[in-house]
Structure formats: structure tokens, C-alpha cells
Design a protein around this nucleic acid. Structure first.
Length: 422
RNA sequence: GUGGCUGUAGCUCAAUCGGUUAGAGCGCCGGACUGUGGCUCCGGAGGUUGGGGGUUCAAUUCCCCUCAGCCACCCCA
């Protein structure tokens, strides 16, 4: 096929767009219920904005080029740097805590797979300016409520919550893992779920080949899914408060404390969480956490921040697995049909009068047998056909036919243009 | 970026041992049916068999390359 979208990019047909609108609708609805304001930013940014964050592999996956003015630019791979810049501009004027959300289209050049394309829309919700764990609970609660809003229950979707501060304290106190080794060890532990061997190797490498300490860390890794003892540690106080808050909201049934969740990115500083389908057949639905140092690093303003990103791709697949292929609802409510060509002017007048009332109206754009017109009306999903012919015109009426019951009544043209209820 | 599997009509699939004009169902368009739809019947459009090369008298079929999709790595904003 010569005519096809670029790999990882989607042609969005009406059925698919219907599903996207369903997802966006729930995103905006829940964001509103949680008191979040919507913002947006440029899809193209100076590459510098993304390279400023140290330790990011993101740079290697940028859609990056030089614009005609010689600027080094990139399609946005994430929203957070833009958000940081925007917040920094008005940091002193904005009342804290700031609750903002956005639904940017993001781009990354990498090999596509199920649930991962080169372009997607991602809900970003962030609370800025509040370091307390209730802020974490708010964003986790919003993420869970989005899944609830899409009809998923605790047997279908799980929120796994952890806190890097607990792991950092434990690894430091008991295994002497220093700050410079921490990220490597955490990244290693992140692999434990998928492959304990790969995790062991990564951890040992992060600890400069110290096999003894690596073994001790790996012994710990096996127990991270059983949070009991770790939750009792002092460093776990914010996490306990966050989880308790989610329980008080009535969302406790969705939440698992699981210290195996550490998230790949270096900039998380506290609570981290991910949402998964319970069967774990898809990749993560959503991921986020607290990154208190990021805003200062990017925007030069020292404000704590917690948030998450939730993409439309995995979410769409989760819904498709449950509901089957998407169906686009037809906008056509009434189909105006004519008997002969002489009826056209009257039909156009009637169609437009109905449209003025806000009713979705279609009619045949060429001369067609009445049967054909009704066929089209039915396949469009119209609830009613309005037939106008010489007899009706003479009486200043039209035949209103219910396509479901095949019953017909004659209605005056004035009533149809007025307040006739279909 | 690495490895494995798979590519036939818009969709789901067929095509004997490699055999001559690549078929079917659904969908789409038209007709039967110029004042009444979903059913039925008839007809039509739609394919460089993903693309390129090779072997062969002959390739959808066998081989190589390439592109795309899926899966697993890598990574996950």
C-alpha cells in the first residue's frame, strides 16, 4: 500500500473517533469533578527544553529537526516540561495548590507495539505546590475514578502504589546503598517482575559488582510484594496517609501497596503508582507519582508537584477488549425524503427548518426512488423519515414515518418547523 | 536498535504437488421496486497476492532482500 499513515500514526475513522471522544469525555468529566482546570501548550518546542532534564533517554526518541530559522526543535514527547515552564512564568501569581490538566498529543520515535505507538493522546493531571500526601491521594483517586467512570471495577483494574522514600531509606540503612547508587538499584528492582535474573544483573551492576550486597538486595526484592513490614517503617508515613485517604474516599478496593513499583524515570522523589488491568495482559494504563525537584530543575521555581499521565492507546484497548469494536453513533435523526423532483424546494425548506431546530437532518443529494431514500435513512440510523410529495405539498403537510414501527402520521409543515416532537 | 512469527479485495478467509482467467461470504454501488426501508433474487465495481529481485516452461505457492504488522527484548515521558 502506497497510501498509508506513517508507522505508529493512526488514521482515525469515525468509529475510532467515537471511542476517543468517549475517553476524552470521561477524562474531562473526572478532571472537572476534582476541580482541575484545563491548559494547553505548543506541540513543537525547542529541543533544549527536553535535554535540560539530566539522565533522560527521551532525547534519543525525539522527533527532532531544524526549523527554517535554524532552531533545533522537537515534537513534544511529554507535557511536564511545558507545564513546568508555564507554571514558572506565573508561579508567584497562581494560588496554590495549582490543579491543572491537559490532553496533549505526544510523539516519540520508537518501535511500535501493541499499546505503544509513535503518537498518542495523554491525559496529564498535576497538583503543584502541595507536598503533603493528600495531594498524592487526590491524583491517584482521580486516575481510579476515570477507570470507574469507564465502567471498570476493582476486579478489572488495580492501582499499585509505592513510595521511593521507603525503598531509599531501607536500602540505605540496611544495605548501605548510597544516593548515587540508588537510581540504578531501583531501576534494577523495577525489572524483578518481568525477569528476576535481569534484575539481579542490573542491581549488581548498580552496586559496582558487589555480589554480596546485590544478593542481599535481591532477597529483599522477593518480599517487596508483601508490604506489611515495610509499611511499618517511619519513612512509610506519607504512603500510609495516602492509602488511608484513598480508603476514606471509598476507593480502597482498587489499591494495592506494592513496593515493586518504582517507575523507570529518575526524577520521581516520593510516592509512585501505576494502574494495570487485573489480568496484566496489557501494559500499564497509567503511571505517575511525585517529583518535587523537577519544577526547580526545569523552571527555576521551587514547588513540589505530583501527577500522572494516562494515554488513550492502552485505555482504548482495554475498552475494546471488553466492548468489542467501537461503533459510531450516527448524527442523522431525521431523513427528509421526496417523491419527485418538484418536491425538492419544499424538502430543502423543511430540512433547513428542522436543522434550525438543532435536529440532525440528511436527504438524498440526487434523484432517487423513495425506496432507496428510505433504505439510506434506515442504514443511517435515523429514527424518522419525513416524506414530502405533491399531495402533501398541496395540503401543507408531510408524512412523518417512524422507521422503527413503520407507523405514519401526517403533520403540518408549520408544526414540523415549530415544536413538533419526533 | 536486536531477535522470532505473519502479510491474498474495505473486512474475514479460500485457492490441490508450483499449473494457465486468484475465488467466496460480509460490506459497497446498481437493478427487480419511478409514493414506502431492513428480507429475497440478479448484476457490478473493487487485487501490481505488501514491494523488489531470483529459481522455473510456469510462482499466491520455493529462495533472497526490503517494507509493514504482531510478539519478545531495549525502553517506557
Amino acid at each position: 500500500m502506497s497510501l498509508s499513515a506513517l508507522p505508529g500514526f493512526r488514521d482515525v475513522f469515525p468509529e475510532a473517533l467515537a471511542r476517543r471522544r468517549q475517553i476524552f469525555g470521561v477524562w474531562r468529566e473526572v478532571a472537572k469533578r476534582y476541580g482541575f482546570e484545563e491548559y494547553d501548550g505548543p506541540p513543537l518546542e525547542a529541543t533544549d527544553l527536553y535535554t535540560r532534564k539530566s539522565g533522560d533517554e527521551i532525547v534519543g526518541q525525539l522527533y527532532r529537526f531544524e526549523d527554517k530559522g535554524g532552531r533545533d526543535v522537537a515534537l513534544r514527547p511529554e507535557m511536564t516540561p511545558t507545564l513546568a515552564r508555564m507554571v514558572a512564568q506565573r508561579a508567584s501569581a497562581l494560588r496554590k495548590p495549582i490543579r491543572w490538566f491537559s490532553i496533549p498529543q505526544l510523539f516519540r520515535y520508537e518501535r511500535q507495539q501493541r499499546g505503544r505507538l509513535r503518537e498518542h493522546f495523554q491525559l496529564n493531571m498535576d497538583i503543584i505546590g502541595e507536598a503533603g500526601p493528600l495531594a498524592d491521594a487526590e491524583v491517584i483517586g482521580a486516575a481510579v475514578d476515570i477507570l470507574r467512570g469507564l465502567g471498570f471495577g476493582p476486579s478489572e483494574v488495580r492501582a499499585r502504589v509505592s513510595d521511593r522514600r521507603v525503598l531509599a531509606e531501607l536500602l540505605g540503612a540496611e544495605f548501605g546503598v548510597g544516593a548515587e547508587e540508588l537510581h540504578g538499584v531501583l531501576a534494577g528492582l523495577d525489572k524483578f517482575d518481568k525477569s528476576p535474573e535481569a534484575a539481579a544483573e542490573a542491581v549488581q551492576q548498580a552496586l559496582a559488582g558487589d555480589a554480596q550486597r546485590a544478593q542481599a538486595v535481591m532477597d529483599l526484592a522477593g518480599r517487596l510484594g508483601e508490604p506489611g513490614e515495610l509499611l511499618g517503617r517511619g519513612a512509610a508515613a506519607p504512603l500510609r496517609e495516602c492509602v488511608d485517604a484513598l480508603g476514606a474516599m471509598g476507593l480502597g478496593a482498587f489499591v494495592d501497596v506494592d513496593f515493586r513499583i518504582v517507575r523507570g524515570l529518575a526524577y520521581y522523589t516520593g510516592i509512585v503508582f501505576e494502574l494495570f488491568d487485573a489480568g496484566r495482559s496489557l501494559r500499564a494504563i497509567c503511571g505517575g507519582g511525585r517529583y518535587d525537584a523537577l519544577l526547580k530543575q526545569i523552571g527555576g521555581v521551587d514547588l513540589p508537584m505530583v501527577g500522572f499521565g494516562m494515554g488513550d492507546v492502552v485505555l482504548g484497548e482495554l475498552i475494546a477488549d471488553r466492548d468489542g469494536p467501537p461503533v459510531a453513533a450516527s448524527p442523522v435523526q431525521v431523513f427528509v425524503a421526496t417523491v419527485g423532483e418538484d418536491d425538492r424546494a419544499a424538502a430543502l425548506a423543511l430540512a433547513h427548518a428542522l436543522r434550525e431546530r438543532g435536529i440532525g437532518v440528511e436527504f438524498a443529494l440526487k434523484k432517487q426512488a423513495l425506496g432507496k431514500q428510505l433504505e439510506l435513512a434506515a442504514s443511517r440510523g435515523a429514527t424518522h423519515a419525513v416524506v414530502i410529495g405533491p399531495d402533501e405539498r398541496a395540503a401543507r403537510q408531510a408524512v412523518v414515518r417512524s422507521l422503527a414501527t413503520k407507523t405514519e402520521t401526517r403533520v403540518g409543515l408549520d408544526a414540523l418547523a415549530g415544536d413538533y416532537a419526533f
